[in-house]
Simulated scan of single mutants.
Amino acid sequence: MNKTFNIYCDESCHIEHDGKDFMFLGSVSCAYPQIRRHTKRIDELKKAHNFYAEIKWSNVSQSKIRFYLDLIDYFFDTDLRFRSIGIKKSLIRVDDNTTYDDFYYKMYYYLLNYKIDTLDHYNVYLDIKDSLSAVKVRRLKEILNVKYGVFRNVQNICSNESLLMQLTDFIMGAISYNMNDKLRRNQAKVAIIERIKKHLNSQSLSTTNYSDKLNLFFINLR
């Protein structure tokens, strides 16, 4: 029986000259029939903690730490999956034929080109990047379907339209903060990273030996 999955994508530290060492692209995948259930449960979790803002890593603070930790626990208790790729930005090379923007979407191909079952179907949603995103996203769909032919939809949406997109931003932010912010002065963010490591039974979030639950892969640019 064919299954359909939604994949919600976001990025962190992808701006070319932002002073960060690593760019990350990440995704949360969810079986299509489970989307409503997960959305409902996350919304209930927000209400239980009197949390009414958009879930964003950049907004993490100590005042709502219990909500954030419960959200991480919820992710690990469900069938939701997270995948991320990391790229060391100093190794990125662009020329007259390949722009930084082209490279960015090429990396999205590598993010999505992972354990695709050609008996299933996939809908991909990317957070809106700029006014040219729609053109690039259409091209990304075409390239993916040359190989697979199973990507029904690849499009941009606003993060406030989807709690699962917000969850992607949240987990993606934790991975990026762990690698790019060596001082780690925000104690709430540190606590979230420690909770993720506890669920993974790992001492580090900078290696790639995780299960399909949370998969982190670093692209080796040559």
Results as ranks from 00 to 15, higher is better:
residue 169 D to I: 03
residue 141 K to I: 15
residue 35 I to H: 03
residue 70 D to T: 14
residue 181 D to F: 15
residue 123 N to V: 11
residue 130 D to Y: 01
residue 51 F to M: 10
residue 109 Y to V: 01
residue 11 E to Q: 02
residue 72 I to A: 12
residue 40 K to A: 06
residue 57 W to A: 10
residue 156 N to M: 07
residue 186 N to E: 15
residue 90 S to N: 09
residue 199 H to T: 09
residue 54 E to R: 00
residue 138 R to L: 15
residue 52 Y to S: 13
residue 66 R to S: 15
residue 9 C to P: 00
residue 155 Q to F: 05
residue 133 S to Y: 05
residue 135 V to Q: 11
residue 14 H to Q: 07
residue 98 T to D: 00
residue 57 W to M: 07
residue 7 I to A: 10
residue 121 H to Y: 13
residue 86 G to I: 00
residue 28 V to H: 00
residue 213 K to I: 12
residue 165 M to N: 06
residue 43 D to F: 05
residue 197 K to I: 01
residue 175 I to M: 10
residue 152 R to L: 06
residue 46 K to F: 07
residue 190 V to A: 14
residue 199 H to L: 09
residue 51 F to Y: 15
residue 5 F to A: 11
residue 134 A to Y: 12
residue 70 D to W: 06
residue 67 F to G: 12
residue 52 Y to T: 02
residue 64 K to W: 10
residue 147 K to M: 01
residue 43 D to E: 11
residue 135 V to C: 04
residue 48 A to L: 14
residue 24 F to N: 08
residue 33 P to W: 01
residue 139 R to S: 12
residue 48 A to S: 14
residue 144 L to A: 02
residue 90 S to Q: 05
residue 87 I to T: 09
residue 24 F to T: 07
residue 211 S to M: 04
residue 189 K to M: 10
residue 161 E to N: 12
residue 161 E to I: 00
residue 180 N to V: 05
residue 46 K to I: 07
residue 145 N to F: 08
residue 85 I to W: 08
residue 45 L to N: 09
residue 220 N to I: 11
residue 162 S to R: 08
residue 16 E to G: 07
residue 194 E to C: 11
residue 167 L to P: 03
residue 52 Y to C: 05
residue 191 A to C: 04
residue 50 N to D: 14
residue 74 Y to M: 08
residue 80 L to V: 15
residue 43 D to H: 09
residue 166 Q to N: 11
residue 150 V to K: 05
residue 159 S to E: 10
residue 30 C to I: 12
residue 86 G to Y: 01
residue 98 T to Y: 08
residue 89 K to W: 10
residue 186 N to T: 05
residue 109 Y to W: 01
residue 12 S to L: 01
residue 5 F to P: 08
residue 195 R to N: 13
residue 30 C to V: 15
residue 44 E to G: 06
residue 3 K to L: 09
residue 179 M to G: 06
residue 65 I to Y: 00
residue 13 C to R: 06
residue 43 D to M: 04
residue 32 Y to R: 12
residue 28 V to N: 00
residue 212 D to Y: 13
residue 25 L to Q: 14
residue 163 L to I: 14
residue 155 Q to C: 13
residue 143 I to Y: 10
residue 185 R to V: 10
residue 56 K to Y: 07
residue 108 Y to K: 01
residue 170 F to M: 12
